[in-house]
Design a binder for these strands. Structure first.
Length: 384
DNA sequence: GTCCGGTAGA
DNA sequence: TCTACCGGAC
């Protein structure tokens, strides 16, 4: 169960509101009004959007919104669209999702990354069904107990579901605000996100908080883009401090780069009459997904028979925070050597805390597996 | 190659 | 408050 995160105090304090920039009799529209007008004309019809950005009323719309937002965490709209359609077709409501086995949910998530989102969403569906009668709770205080609902999604739902004047601060909103006011950031400073949220609270129109949040994010996605902003098309160009500066992309300052350690690992095709050996674990990188068994090249060399597996080439895979060089190994030619090497491998995997299971080759297509091991699968296929 | 993007757990 | 987590676009 989740710990207290202090995030919904934001939602509650927002209810007090600090007004907005829309003043009666003011002839010049404030930028939130300009933004809303632009959004009315440029809103993209995305598969999870209801017509006219109406507040969420039907539970089916709440479900679709939540699913789409889980898919969109740290993920672009274009990448998420196809996943959303397939996911909704198979899991059309909280009940179907809650009933499904986790492995099937992960299979629909495979390839899009950040797989923990899928297990959180699945667990969220079960909580909604078992503890809230199949209806997403309307009390923001109870959101603390829900997996996968952080400050952004909490703000989004507070606005869209409850009509509270609460900002939904994603990367797009941060960028648009940073440019509008020429705030440097840096983006990886938690204080920066807080300042953006505080500022947006003073501008968010109390009558249309959900639409305003969407509009801000839409502008960031389609016009105020990270690298090549289309300033001449921007409805806020006249009030944008970054544009006036002549260097809009200087805002916000990018997060400080992190080192990306290189890891060499040996990956094994382990094939018997029982099938092909795959492994998984509950935590860490690619948690809950199936992997071809792999060991750090160091531990594989440490006096084991794994070196008897024949090297057939390498696969490289870049994660954001690390780089993998995988050395592909297939069973040795001699069957005696093969048995010994296999026992050695299974023992070392168990010591590393991996759960092991054998799959028939035709079963692999239905197994949730990340991109990197689909690449490996392609290279191993000729050997089974 | 470099940059982009929310949440949880520590 | 910091770090781990994935894959795709440019």
């Amino acid at each position: 169960m989740k710990k207290t995160k202090h995030r919904h105090s934001d939602v509650q304090s927002a209810a007090r509101g600090s007004g907005n920039d829309v003043r009666e009799g003011d002839k010049t529209p404030s930028w939130p009004e300009t933004l809303l007008a632009w959004y009315g004309a440029h809103r993209r019809p995305l598969p999870w959007r209801t017509p006219g950005s109406a507040p969420l009323s039907e539970e089916a719309d709440v479900y679709r919104t939540v699913v789409s937002e889980f898919l969109l965490m740290r993920t672009r709209v274009r990448a998420a669209e196809g996943y959303f359609r397939r996911f909704l077709e198979r899991f059309p409501n909280w009940d179907e999702l809650a009933r499904a086995p986790e492995e099937e949910v992960l299979r629909f998530w495979q390839g899009i990354g950040f797989y923990r989102r899928a297990t959180y969403l699945h667990s969220l569906a079960r909580t909604v069904v078992e503890r809230h009668g199949g209806k997403f709770p309307r009390d923001p205080r109870s959101w603390n107990e829900l997996p996968g609902i952080g400050p952004y999604l909490s703000g989004l739902l507070a606005a869209k579901l409850l009509g509270l004047p609460e900002p939904a601060v994603d990367g797009n909103a941060q960028r648009v605000v940073a440019r509008l006011f020429a705030w440097e950031g840096p983006k990886d400073d938690p204080g920066f996100v807080r300042r953006v949220r505080d500022l947006l609270r003073t501008y968010i129109p109390p009558e249309l908080p959900g639409t305003f949040n969407e509009a801000l994010m839409e502008l960031g996605e389609t016009v105020c883009t990270p690298r090549s902003p289309r300033c001449p098309e921007c409805p806020l160009q006249d009030e944008c401090a970054a544009r006036r500066s002549g260097e809009p992309t200087r805002y916000p300052r990018p997060a400080s780069p992190r080192p990306r350690p290189l890891e060499e690992r040996d990956v094994y095709l382990c094939r018997t009459e029982a099938g092909i050996l795959l492994v998984r674990r509950d935590t860490g990188l690619l948690a809950r997904l199936w992997h071809f068994p792999h060991l750090s090249s160091a531990s594989a060399e440490a006096g084991s028979c794994c070196a008897d597996f024949a090297f057939i080439g390498t696969v490289e895979h870049a994660f954001t925070h690390r780089l993998w060089i995988l050395r592909l190994r297939v069973p040795p030619a001699s069957s005696a050597t093969c048995g010994r090497a296999r026992e050695d491998l299974v023992r070392l995997l168990a010591e590393d805390g991996w759960e092991t299971r054998w799959f028939l080759p035709e079963e692999l297509v239905r197994v949730p597996m990340p991109r990197v091991f689909r690449k490996v699968e392609e290279r191993f296929a000729p050997f089974w």
